[in-house]
Amino acid sequence: MNELVITRHNHLIDPTLSIWGWEIPLYLFLGGLVGGMMLISGYFILTGRTKNTLCSCFRIPIIGIIAISLGMLFLFLDLEHKLYVWNLYINFKWQSPMSWGAWILIFIYPILFINALLRLPENFAQKFPSLEKLSKEIQAKPFLTKLIGSLSMIFGGLLGAYTAILLSAFSARPAWNSPMLWTLFLASGLSSAAALVHLVGKDPYERHMLAKADNGFLIAELIIIILMLIGFVSSGQVHIDAAKLILSGPFASTFWVFVVFMGIIIPLIIQILSVNNKIPHTNVAPIMVMLGGLILRFIVVYAGQFSHWPRNVFTGF
């Protein structure tokens, strides 16, 4: 019998941490999505698909800039001391994932921008002849194209991984504190990105190929989730408790139904059928995948705030 009474009642802290609401999960999702899209875009560029005018690598950066800006807006909305936000950019703290993130986001923009320059949308090109000129010059120099491709792959990867490392670095929150988390977020980011590009993509070949890739990402995601849970239950009590949160605890049902079943398994089945031409490609699967990815971020962010180290010192009772 161990009774623990604590007389504290700090807003956003007690009874459990609730410092991060809807803004952060959305921000993390968008970050992961853009990261994934940049990987895809970079891959297409490097694999020389730029010759194809319909290549999604021309539309991705536009969508990317919008998405990442939204993400940063949400991040800003979450800040409690908004007027002081500039402090973020007069410091770089190498130990602080959040500082890394802030700066990575800054680099993302120019990369997405020059990526967009590879081929400007028609109306755009007419409006800004100077940009159009720039774009032409880049196209004239293939090594620049290659460079852009590699940069967007590198930073896409960084961005995708960072959104998870931000959380897994918090050893105070056992449910976040897993080395697998970043791979999970990366895979999930990629699958969501593939899904989105699949949705907006014009070129049938790419759509088909992305659906295929998506299946790969989804399977990877499944395996990572399993490995992560194994990792938890095979380490200390606090991590076992953390795992319980999604295995049997308050987040279990949402996790298994919306993330695993509807966000991974169902769309996986649909897409396996469609890539094998059993059924036509539909928008259902990709949308489910993206929703799954979004809900995953919400669950991880909330579960992490739920989990903590034991406050009692007496044990064995």
Partner: peptide
Amino acid sequence: YDKCIGCKACIAACPYDARFIHPDGYA
């Protein structure tokens, strides 16, 4: 307090939940 942006990372990082956000917005 003049450097704090209120991102709450430090609150998440404290295993003892010793921190909170002051009504004026800083940790």
